[in-house]
């Protein structure tokens, strides 16, 4: 499979924060979810890919082209939704259509209007008057109407109610019906990603902690629930990390099936991305 995006040895240093070194790929035709705490470096990574911040090291290829050298060509094929960054909000929705016509070669007014209709957005409305959900839908409609091949979305579902969220996920699934299309989205609402993401990249404190396919992650990891005394008996090499609570103890294990045979007198649950995130960030190691 070809890659839409390849990030190699990326480093970005700030005074108090360092991102990197980061290496990963986005295969064409896939949805890649970027998860991590606020401040873990998700937005910095996205901004580096978009070349709107200056990186200290590394290279980023988008559609096999360097993202700096071929910035203009590459950006014609990218649709972007950034958190809290958009058009001046005293503009009308229909203004976006006429502005974007003068920005993207491939801007398609019909597509845009089709999405407005689908999202029940009245083109005469002023952006300022939109609710958060409507605004997000407008941002997505804007990002997708120049027929991009890659969507880069920073927190596209945060602050949305479940109904709108599922509508938004529908659009994403629709978008990747084309095998050349791919999506990179960052989020801290991990449940959105649990089913639709093909690959999950977990970033913590500026580094990639996990980069695995959804299946590998959710079918492989498990959480063993036991008490303190049992924890002492568990083989050290089976423990990825653990967290002691007041009444129980949770141990993150790999190879769930094998482990539930080995420790057949306790519960080993399937793990959600959210719990996995918590156990890796907050859990202790042995």
């Amino acid at each position: 499979m070809e890659n839409s995006v390849e990030v190699k040895n990326l480093v970005k240093e700030y005074d108090k924060f360092k991102l990197g070194e980061i290496n990963f790929e986005i295969p064409s035709g896939s949805i890649v979810g970027l998860i991590g705490e606020n401040g873990a470096g998700k937005t910095t990574l996205i901004k580096s890919i978009l070349n709107i911040i200056n990186t200290n090291n590394g290279s980023i290829n988008i559609f096999n082209k360097d993202n700096k050298q071929y910035e203009k060509v590459v950006k014609e094929d990218i649709g972007v939704v950034l958190d809290n960054m958009f058009f001046p909000e005293n503009l009308k929705i229909k203004d976006i259509n006429s502005i974007m016509k003068g920005i993207f070669k491939n801007w398609n007014s019909e597509t845009f209007n089709k999405y407005l209709l689908e999202f029940k957005l009245d083109e005469k409305l002023i952006i300022k008057k939109l609710s958060k959900g409507m605004r997000k839908k407008l941002e997505i409609a804007t990002a997708i109407s120049h027929e991009p091949k890659l969507l880069i979305l920073d927190e596209p579902t945060s602050g949305l109610d479940p109904v709108v969220r599922s509508e938004v996920l529908d659009i994403f699934m629709d978008f990747i019906q084309d095998e050349e299309h791919s999506i990179l989205l960052s989020t801290h609402i991990t449940s959105d990603l649990e089913h639709i993401a093909d690959k999950i990249i977990f970033i913590n404190d500026g580094k990639i902690v996990l980069d695995k396919s959804r299946d590998e992650l959710l079918d492989n990891y498990g959480v063993l629930k036991c008490d303190d005394t049992y924890l002492a008996k568990v083989d050290k090499k089976d423990i990825v990390s653990y967290k002691k609570n007041k009444y129980d103890c949770q141990i993150l294990v790999e190879n769930r099936d094998k482990m539930s045979k080995k420790y057949n007198d306790c519960v080993i649950d399937k793990i959600s991305l959210e719990d996995l995130m918590v156990l890796i960030i907050k859990g202790e190691r042995v």
Partner: peptide, 8 residues
């Protein structure tokens, strides 16, 4: 798309 499960 129909069952909202990842392609992979």
């Amino acid at each position: 798309q129909d069952i909202k499960i990842s392609v992979m």
